[in-house]
């Protein structure tokens, strides 16, 4: 069957001058407010930082001399800076897997209805809202040799007090433990939200398919929350590379630089030694490290998913 439309004369309504639908440069005006904020607060500082990193910039007399890659060259030979890179990497390696494993374990354990589950979820998340100063005061007391809670607990089972914050080997792990205790709530909540998205029927089908507890976790739960897993890992990599407050307040980077992080190094170089060019160069290296680490994780997870 074919239908032929009778030619119709359409009388166009009189147009309001200037009003029409379609591409127009004025449509772009809608994004201008955002663009101003984005360019002014993100792109401009980013490139300005890069520019500063190429200069010998002295905040005292406000003098700046273009120095090319001299700052970067000097950083590569700076034992203290390289030490902070090593420390920061170690810190990320200690905390990120802990966030994933402990966060997921807590989420699995607390993914239940009822008052107990809700209370425990609130308790674990509660620590995340504390400020870093409160957290470090609490943990400084916990770690005190002799009279701290941990020392006393160890004393009960006959272990000599461990000087957590003043031992070169223990300072960084102690800061890592504090950090995990502090903000484990967020990954836990993200995992909980993901777990609650998994349809219950999948677990019932798995039960009928004779899948045991581990098989169900491995074959049903984990593949269902891959996206959240990737988000948590990338977010935590970016966040933990920026270790600063805990180490400043607990150990000031000591003993013997064993817990000095890159951000602490940048802070000290820029705001204590007033050597802004050198600090900016260190910032650029940190930026690069974070971008590469997050990218590698993202690509790896994409490949696994495909």
């Amino acid at each position: 069957m074919t239908a032929t439309a009778a030619p119709a004369t359409v009388s166009r309504p009189a147009r309001t001058p200037g009003a029409h639908i379609g591409p127009d440069w004025r449509n772009g005006l809608f994004i201008v407010p955002f663009l101003i904020v984005y360019l002014g607060l993100l792109i401009y500082p980013l490139f300005w930082g890069m520019w500063i990193s190429l200069q010998q910039y002295d905040m005292f007399d406000q003098s700046a001399i273009f120095a090319g890659f001299a700052n970067f060259k000097r950083l590569m030979g700076d034992g203290i800076f390289l030490g902070t890179v090593r420390n920061t990497f170690l810190f990320v390696l200690m905390t990120v897997p802990a966030f994933v494993i402990i966060g997921l374990a807590l989420a699995l354990a607390l993914n239940r209805e009822g008052r107990t589950g809700a209370t425990l979820r609130a308790v674990f998340f509660g620590a995340s809202v504390l400020s870093v100063t409160i957290v470090t005061i609490i943990w400084k007391m916990m770690y005190l040799p002799g009279i701290g809670l941990i020392s006393r607990a160890l004393g009960v089972v006959g272990i000599a007090p461990i000087p957590f914050l003043t031992s070169q080997n223990m300072a960084l792990p102690a800061i890592a433990a504090t950090t995990v205790w502090w903000i484990i709530g967020l990954p836990m909540m993200l995992f909980l939200a993901a777990l609650q998205q998994i349809p219950g029927e999948l677990y019932e089908a798995a039960a009928l398919d004779s899948a045991g507890r581990w098989r169900t976790l491995w074959s049903i739960t984990l593949p269902s929350i891959t996206r959240t897993l990737v988000v948590v890992v990338i977010y935590e990599i970016v966040a933990q590379f920026q270790l600063f407050g805990q180490t400043l307040l607990l150990t000031q980077g000591g003993p013997n630089n064993s817990s000095r992080s890159i951000v602490l190094f940048i802070y000290e170089t820029g705001f204590r030694d007033w050597n802004l060019g050198y600090a900016a160069a260190a910032s650029e290296i940190l930026f690069l490290l974070m971008a590469v680490a997050a990218m590698v994780q993202y690509i790896a997870s994409r490949r696994r998913e495909a």
Partner: peptide, 21 residues
């Protein structure tokens, strides 16, 4: 007995296929 040991198979209303397999 647990579901898997009863020797029955079930077809669910919303299919319940494993989406990642």
């Amino acid at each position: 007995l647990p579901p898997g040991a009863r020797g029955v198979a079930m077809v669910f209303q919303h299919y319940a296929l494993y989406p990642h397999m």
